[in-house]
Simulated assay, not measured.
Amino acid sequence: MTRTTVTIVAAALATAGAARAEVKTQEIEYRQGDTVLKGFLAYDDAAKGKRPGILVVHEWWGNNAHARNAATKLAKAGYVGFALDMFGEGKSTTHPEDAKAFVAEATKDPAVKKARFEAALEQLVAQPQVDREKIGVIGYCFGGGVALDMAREGEPLKALATFHGSLARSSEPAKEGTFGPRSILVQTGGADPMVPKEQVAALEKEMKAAGVKARVITYPAAKHGFTNPDADKAGMAGLAYDAKADRRSWDELLKYLKAVFGR
C-alpha cells in the first residue's frame, strides 16, 4: 500500500467516525409544582459510558438560543448539557423590561427559585448518559447569580463557572463544608457596569473564607453579555458582544471542566 493510499484510507476512516458521532438534542418538558418548565438536552450519541452533566442557567432573557447553544457546545466537548428553564413555559424575550419582570417573578420566592433549579437537576441526573456524581453548572448574567446561590445552599455540584454573571449575594454567604465545588471559575468584563469590581472583590473574599478556590478572569474591554452575539441588539449601552472574549472564555471553561472532571 502506497503512502498516498494510506493517507486516503485514514482520511476516509476519520470521516466515517465523524459521521457516526452525532450530537442529539431534545426538548424536555418538566414541572416545578404547577409550573411547566421547558428545558433543552444535548449529548453526543456516539460517546460511550456515563459522563459529567452540566446545567446551563440562562441570562435574564430566558432559555433562548444562546443558552441552548452552550448546551450543544458542551455536548460536543464530551459532556451532557441541559439548558434549564427558570421562568416557566420556556419564556424568553429580547426586551429589557420583560426580562426584568421575568427575573422578579422567578426570584420573589427563594424557595421557588431553588425548586426550579432542583427540578432541572433531577431531569439531568435521570439521563442514562449522566454520571450523577459528576454534576456542574454554568451560568450567564442572571444565571450566574442563580448558580452561585444554589451552590451556597448546598446543591451537589462539583464545578461552577459564570460568564458576565451577577455576583451580588441574594442568600447567606458560602460556608466551608456546604458549598459544593472546591473551585469556581468567574469570567467577567472589565467594562461591565452591571458587575462592578466591588462585586468581584466581595465574591473573592467570600470564597476565600469558605475555603473555595476562585479563579477570576477579567477581560478589560468587555461589557456585559460579552458571550452573546445578540447582546448589541438590546439597545443598552452596557451590553455588547465581544468575539475574542467569547472564544477565550469558552476555552477557559473547557480547561476548568477538564481539571475538575478529568476529561
Rank of each mutant, 00 (worst) to 15 (best):
F82D: 07
N69P: 12
L84Q: 11
R116A: 05
A115V: 12
K73E: 13
F82M: 12
F82R: 13
V103Q: 06
E118R: 11
D98V: 09
F102L: 13
M86K: 01
V112H: 06
A120S: 03
G78M: 05
E97M: 15
A119I: 06
A75G: 03
A71K: 14
E122Q: 15
D85F: 04
D98G: 07
A70T: 13
K73T: 14
H66Y: 05
D85Q: 02
N69K: 10
K91I: 09
E118N: 09
E105T: 10
A83V: 09
K113W: 13
K113P: 03
A106H: 07
A104S: 04
E118W: 14
S92R: 11
D85M: 07
K73W: 11
T94D: 13
A77Y: 00
K100P: 13
E97F: 09
A106G: 10
L121N: 00
K73H: 04
M86G: 00
Q123A: 07
M86Y: 01
L74E: 01
D109R: 02
E118K: 09
F82L: 15
H95G: 05
G78V: 02
P110W: 06
P96M: 03
E122I: 15
A77W: 02
P96T: 05
A120Q: 04
R116Y: 02
D98I: 12
K73L: 10
L74F: 10
K91L: 11
Q123N: 15
K76V: 03
A67T: 06
G90M: 03
E105L: 12
K76M: 08
T107H: 06
A119Y: 04
